[in-house]
Nucleic acid binder design. Structure first.
Lengths: 200, 200, 200, 200
DNA sequence: GATGAATGAGTTTTCATTCAT
DNA sequence: GATGAATGAAAACTCATTCAT
């Protein structure tokens, strides 16, 4: 709020550096020193100057990845018609992100499990994570009500979708020649079969 | 190799402490100091005395969780008859572990993503992880050949199963009143539907 | 490279402290803690902040002693005329350094034998040490060709000169009332006799 | 005094291990742990059990090297006739030790400069070192009195001989294909020329 | 006597943060 | 505002020594 242009640019530069380091070496080895080097800064003090603390920086990383993901996924999901197509679009566009922004999802998976401990941050993260999950839950319940989806526990299904996508991201980190498009299609097929109302 | 009784007992005690700390505070905040306190040791030096380094300790944690999981899951999977029952037994028994050994799976999820970087360790882990995945792949391909499973990419399916289970474990860590048995059943239903040969 | 004034000054201060500690307690007991105390620093962290590691600090110590020695010896050797006078100037000016910079040569003798093990460092040191030795070898061979020196193995002679000087430095460390000037003259006489073309 | 056979054997085994480690990695990196491994002992405690402390072990190392050196050099020096031949025998036999006991002299050079600090040990070492030096001094003064040697400061000459030999040992440590016999002869020639009464 | 386990002070190094300019 | 220097707590690990058996 009320940030100058250079200030905003500096913060973006640092967040970008953090994403790269997180994707490359993992959360445990991501230090201000490493980020500063990556971002071309001369001292770690500069990071502390621009961010209230490590937590704020990490929260910004999450926010940035969210922003990028939303920008890519939302229109693709919106373009889909019907519950099944939307679920497919969600899964496929999410995995396509691997090719578009190779480090963002990896960075996210490094940060999220390590945000706990800090009360406020955790609370905030848990809330938004739960909100997202609940949104998907409601979508699925609507689909069940509309007759397109079979009966299943929506929480478990939404959690499974997330976990499956995350697992693909994780494997892709150590095996980048994986074809995201093909895997995305397969995964969408999988959950299409898992959710589809049974043929009678 | 060639360890005395006392030595073995101490190592087990330290590994147990490490598992507890990992499950409670996460990998990034798991230090020798914290583990020593948890295990009731007077100094961090003792851990270094019994383990060649942090890596060796973490590898032992993985091995211990693996051992415990095997001991619980193997007989339950072996008791199942038919491909579909085996897949169900795999998923359900894995998630049941949350109730039986509440901290082990959580600790595993903390350690695994952070083992990278160390050449030898990672190599070992990647190999065995890939071996497990390939085993499941082959199981599924056999099931497809036998006609019980529909056509799908076995690698994607195996990865999705793992990811879904891990996601449940992760959510359980922040919401322990989740009922593992029920969730396990639901998740097994999910993948039963996802793999089942289509009704005609 | 690209160091600020403050940075350079701090590094010099630390190197000076290291030289003093090395001369006083020897390499084995020279710790960052000891150096920090000697240099009036509040923490050992500061040394790590300014130097990449103990090796870099020790290399800087060697470089500093080398610089000081060169500054003192080079003009005195250059002022000498003829091979025999130059050898004398080399030996005498080297030993005179004991009086001018009492701790520098002692520190050097502590550091040099302990630099081994570190691949890069050792390589660098061995190379420059060999280069110096070879320079002296060539000087002596030239002197032999010019007829002023008798026939002898130049490598052995150069090594003996170095060893004799180092031995004097070592003895001086436990017996500082030794008169460097007098010893230097005697040692120069010794090698003058050892190298002199035989009277016929 | 009053040691059993096994006790004596154990001590010898440890001293031998210490000599090997000292020669290989240098004093600074010579720890009880390293020595225990080298000597095939299961714990460092055993070293402390057999020796009062690190100092005593190091003193034993010095004593052992002395014993071995004496056994080799003394008869060879005794066999020489005349002052000049004796000086030659001293230098040559000392350097020949490099081939006979490759690690002993190297270990000695590592230990000696690091014995300072401990009052008693240092006192003892300094005394015996000074005694040896004085012995050589007297030998040389006798030779001067007998007319075979020219006038020079005997202390400087004795120190130079020691230093030259030590320098050869040091160089040999990093360049073991050096031919000790040849170098010994050259070095003896050198000091023969340096001490010889001038031809008139 | 002899041994393996333990100790706790020590090492270098890295950390996020603060401060003076 | 912005920057490089400094801080001191904490990290993993090693050390020679001690102790219970």
């Amino acid at each position: 709020m009320g940030r100058t242009v250079t200030e905003t640019a500096r913060r973006a530069q640092i967040v970008q550096g953090a994403i790269e380091v997180l994707a490359e070496v993992g959360y445990a080895k991501t230090s201000f020193a490493r980020i500063a080097r990556q971002a071309g800064l001369s001292s770690t003090g500069m990071i502390s100057y621009h961010f209230a603390g490590k937590d704020e920086l990490m929260r910004e990383v999450v926010a940035e990845v969210w922003r990028v993901s939303e920008a890519y996924m939302r229109p693709r999901i919106a373009a889909a018609e019907g519950h099944r197509a939307r679920l497919r679009a969600y899964i496929e566009s999410n995995i396509e992100l691997l090719a578009v922004h190779p480090q963002h999802l990896a960075a996210l998976l490094e940060v999220l499990p390590n945000l706990r401990g800090d009360e406020d941050t955790q609370q905030g993260y848990l809330e938004s994570a739960r909100a997202v999950l609940e949104f998907h839950q409601r979508q699925m319940q609507q689909a069940q009500a509309d007759g397109g989806f079979r009966e299943f526990d929506a929480w478990v299904m939404a959690t499974a979708v997330r976990g499956a996508i995350d697992a693909v991201v994780t494997r892709w980190m150590t095996d980048p020649q994986l074809d995201p498009a093909a895997v995305g299609r397969e995964l969408a097929d999988l959950f299409d079969a898992a959710t589809r109302a049974e043929a009678k």
